[in-house]
Structure formats: structure tokens, C-alpha cells
């Protein structure tokens, strides 16, 4: 069970990384970064898994809980991911206003012409 979740997280990570390496559009690169972050959240949730454990909210008659610490760290990862995504999108907007395109290679070409 846990291994399957790990494999899924690793595959999603690979998909995000491949997108980040091969796409040329800044918006798509931002989406790829976001996909990579979701794979980390998936991995954290899978690490927290305890066989037979329930959600870590203490109530009567429950003794087995999943690990609560990775869940708290997943929240940290999500928040920092949102911050990174916001700054990346702000830079994309600035780039579009300056060069009129979101294509990374086109921007490289334009900066080379300017020299």
C-alpha cells in the first residue's frame, strides 16, 4: 500500500520535473513546479500512514492514529509552495510586460539581440 503511494509520488515528481525541463512557456513551468510540490505532499501523507490508523483527532475508543507530524509539515510545504508560485507568477507577469512574451527562448533571443 505504502509502496504504491510512494511510486505514485515519485512518478508525479518525475512528470513535474520533466515539464519544468522541457517546457518553454513560463506559465507551464510554473504549473510544473506546482505539480512537483504536490508530489512532495503525496509523499508526506504516505510517510504518515500507519496500518489501521485513523485521522489524528483524539476521540473516545480510538487508539491507533496516523502520524500527525508529517501532516503539519505538509501544511508548511503547501504554504511555501504557494509563496514560490506567487513570486514565480509575478516574475512571469513582469517578464510579459517587458518582453511581450512568456516564451523563455524568445526572451533569451531578445536579450541576445540587445547586447
Amino acid at each position: 500500500m505504502q509502496n504504491a503511494a510512494f511510486v505514485a509520488a515519485a512518478l508525479v515528481f518525475a512528470i513535474g520535473l520533466h515539464g519544468m525541463l522541457t517546457r518553454r512557456n513560463m506559465i507551464r513551468i510554473c504549473i510544473s513546479i506546482s505539480v512537483m510540490e504536490s508530489s512532495l505532499v503525496m509523499a508526506l501523507v504516505a510517510v504518515a500512514y500507519v496500518p489501521g490508523g485513523s485521522a489524528p483527532i483524539v476521540s473516545d475508543g480510538q487508539t491507533m492514529f496516523v502520524d500527525p507530524l508529517p501532516h503539519a509539515l505538509a501544511l508548511t510545504a503547501i504554504v511555501i509552495g504557494a509563496g514560490i508560485l506567487a513570486i514565480a507568477l509575478a516574475l512571469t507577469v513582469a517578464m510579459y510586460r517587458h518582453y511581450g512574451t512568456t516564451d523563455v527562448l524568445a526572451v533569451f533571443g531578445k536579450t541576445r539581440e540587445g547586447q
Binding site: F6, A9, A10, L11, A14, L17, H18, L21, A43
Partner: peptide, 12 residues
């Protein structure tokens, strides 16, 4: 990327 994903899995 697939090699890195395999490493990611092994670390976990």
C-alpha cells in the same frame, strides 16, 4: 527524471 524518481522512491 525517471532515474531521479527512482531515487526519490528509494529515499522514501
Amino acid at each position: 527524471c525517471l532515474l531521479l524518481a527512482a531515487g526519490f522512491f528509494l529515499v522514501l
